[in-house]
């Protein structure tokens, strides 16, 4: 599935400054793997050593926080927008 990914400021060093990039994958995990092939190094910024989402990263598929869905197994429909956003905000 072709999706678009919104990239937070602190990861734009990997995407040549692009704030939104394309990627492929049927699940969030696959999309992140695909991003790694395009922008080497980006995966380990988003996932920890055990391959889980870092605790201070929020990822949204469409409007939904993937922690309310199936995490990395969340399906990513064709054309959906994925947002990666630092979690340390608010309050």
């Amino acid at each position: 599935m072709a999706v678009s990914v919104r990239v937070p400021t602190i990861l734009r060093t990997y995407t040549s400054g692009e704030s939104e990039v394309g990627a492929e994958g049927a699940t969030l995990g696959e999309v992140i793997d695909d991003l790694e092939t395009r922008y080497a190094g980006i995966r380990s910024r988003v996932l920890d050593d055990a391959g889980a989402l870092r605790r201070f990263v929020n990822v949204y598929v469409g409007n939904d926080d993937v922690r309310f869905l199936d995490g990395l197994a969340t399906p990513t429909a064709d054309g959906v927008q994925i947002s990666i956003i630092p979690a340390v905000a608010g309050g």
Partner: peptide, 26 residues
């Protein structure tokens, strides 16, 4: 609130010169 917060984080990433008190100057 969590939706508003997410929006603010996105705006903070796009707009230069904004001080979001509980985002980029948190």
């Amino acid at each position: 609130y969590d939706d508003v917060n997410r929006l603010a984080s996105e705006i903070a990433g796009e707009e230069d010169g904004w001080a979001f008190v509980n985002v980029n100057v948190r």
